Simulated scan of single mutants.
Amino acid sequence: MRLLIIGSKGFIGSHCMAVLNAHHTVYGCDVVTDYVSANYFQIDATNADYKEVFKAQQFDICINCSGAASVPDSFIHPFRDFSLNTLNVVKMLEAVKEVQPGCKFINLSSAAVYGNPVTLPITENTPVLPLSPYGLHKKQAEEIVKEYAAFFDIQTCSLRLFSVFGPGLRKQLFWDLHTKIIQSDHIKLWGTGNESRDFIYVEDVVNAISCVIEKADFKGECINISDGIETSIKSVVELFQQVHFKSFDFTFDGQQSPGYPVNWRADVSKLQSLGFKSTISLEQGLQKYIAWLQQEEK
């Protein structure tokens, strides 16, 4: 199959390019200049014209890995976040509808749409109550994805990614931990340590996307993407402490950051019904991530 990955220079997009290229003909699309790659489309960062991309090449699948991915920044620049996470999805789907209506569309959403769920694990039917502009804009994008499936017969689905990590990620908990450790042996973290997340290694995300490509219904549905294992922040920092190449100790400040949920654990039965099995544990993933960090330090 011919795959188009929009946001191919980003964290998840670049891993999709590397892994999916072994089984498909993969084309990249991003705002970054690339004079080397043959199958690559550069688009305007301020006024992307996706129709031109779809006119240039036939695709079986379009995977949208683009967008902003910062909860704090969405409070500071809400319109920018809306433009990248919601408005651009409309532009992509309009291009699909008008130029290649037979192309399936996969939109990478976020577990941020759930906010603070009342019960765990979180199923796809759990009420969505976002805590941030970022989460709300991802929710709006999901509604647009459903709209194009329901009213225009475009084959679509949204993937609700939980806490993705791996080589190339220069933000969020593990990157923040590393940057603080490099500066000091004694670090302070927000929260109490009892907060929890459901982590998934980036290559397993790509494996999940492969399962979706092969077996999903593409009727506008949402699918949780994670390992289905709840881990407290204190526990994961202790694990990071064991495998990091520099020793450190840590404390928590007891403060809650606006826009962030307290506890997360995904129900991944729908994903597993598509054939997904996690292949990389949290500890194995952290070892790979820290090996990458060591390479970056050289």
Rank of each mutant, 00 (worst) to 15 (best):
G7P: 05
G13D: 08
M17N: 04
N21H: 11
Y27R: 04
V32M: 11
S37P: 09
Q42P: 13
N47A: 15
D49V: 12
F54M: 13
K55G: 12
F59L: 13
D60Y: 03
C65F: 06
S66R: 14
P72I: 08
V89G: 11
E98F: 01
C103S: 15
S110Y: 07
Y114F: 07
G115P: 06
G115T: 00
T119R: 14
L120N: 03
L120E: 02
P121Q: 05
P127I: 10
L131V: 01
Q140S: 14
V145W: 08
K146C: 09
A150P: 03
F152V: 01
S163P: 02
G166F: 00
K180A: 12
D185A: 09
I187D: 00
K188L: 11
K188P: 00
L189F: 09
W190D: 10
S196W: 01
S196Y: 06
D204S: 03
A216W: 07
D217C: 10
K219W: 10
I223W: 00
E230N: 09
I233K: 10
L239C: 09
F240S: 13
F245R: 06
F250N: 05
T251H: 02
D253R: 10
Q255R: 14
V262C: 10
N263K: 03
D267W: 00
L271N: 08
S281Q: 04
L282P: 11
L282C: 13
Y289L: 15
I290A: 02
L293R: 08
